[in-house]
Computed example of a mutant assay.
Amino acid sequence: MSRQRKIEVIKQSEYVTIGELVRLTDVRYSTLKHYTEEGLIPFDQSESNLTRRYKREESLERINEIRELRKQKKSVPEIKKLLLDD
């Protein structure tokens, strides 16, 4: 298992892993994985090792949007419709 990057490095990185998004947002890994699988959080995937990489700023904005919609009691299908039909 590789060593974790320091949070200062993560906050300056263009791309982060899902584990690093967990550290930045305090959102559970399983929740972020579900949002990713639902197409709510876009990612790039490396061909060589199949690692998903998330654009840090874009992902943080999207997670905050999802959080706000969840506070409004929106379901994941409703959120998908709102965010992906733009």
Rank of each mutant, 00 (worst) to 15 (best):
M1G: 08
S2D: 07
R3G: 08
Q4H: 08
Q4F: 11
Q4D: 08
Q4A: 09
R5T: 01
K6A: 14
K6C: 11
K6H: 15
I7E: 04
I7L: 13
I7D: 02
I7R: 05
V9N: 13
V9I: 15
V9M: 14
V9Q: 14
V9C: 10
I10A: 03
I10H: 07
I10N: 08
K11T: 03
K11G: 00
Q12V: 06
E14H: 09
E14T: 12
Y15C: 06
V16G: 00
V16Q: 04
T17H: 05
G19A: 02
E20Q: 05
L21P: 00
L21V: 01
L21C: 01
V22N: 01
V22Y: 05
V22W: 05
R23S: 12
R23L: 10
L24W: 02
T25K: 08
T25Q: 06
D26C: 06
D26E: 13
V27W: 06
V27D: 04
R28F: 04
R28Y: 07
R28P: 03
R28L: 06
Y29K: 00
Y29P: 00
S30T: 07
T31I: 07
T31C: 03
L32T: 01
H34C: 11
H34D: 14
H34L: 15
Y35P: 01
T36Q: 11
T36H: 10
E37Y: 11
E37Q: 15
E37S: 11
E38K: 12
G39D: 07
G39A: 05
G39S: 04
L40T: 06
L40A: 01
I41Q: 03
I41L: 11
P42M: 06
F43L: 06
F43K: 05
F43R: 03
F43S: 08
D44S: 14
Q45A: 03
S46N: 15
E47M: 02
E47Q: 05
S48M: 07
N49Y: 09
N49P: 01
T51W: 15
R52W: 02
R53V: 01
R53T: 02
R53Q: 09
R53L: 12
Y54H: 06
Y54I: 02
Y54G: 01
K55F: 05
K55E: 12
K55G: 03
R56N: 09
E57W: 04
E57R: 10
E57Q: 12
E58H: 10
S59K: 01
S59R: 03
L60F: 04
E61W: 13
E61D: 12
I63D: 03
N64F: 08
N64C: 06
I66V: 03
I66T: 05
I66R: 07
E68V: 11
L69H: 07
L69P: 10
R70G: 07
R70V: 11
K71P: 07
Q72A: 15
K73R: 15
S75W: 13
S75L: 12
S75A: 10
S75R: 11
V76I: 13
V76M: 04
V76R: 07
V76Q: 08
P77I: 06
P77Q: 09
P77G: 10
P77W: 11
E78C: 09
K80S: 14
K81E: 15
K81H: 15
K81I: 13
K81W: 14
K81N: 15
L82P: 10
L83Q: 05
L83D: 07
L84V: 05
L84S: 04
L84T: 02
D85K: 11
D86W: 14
D86A: 11
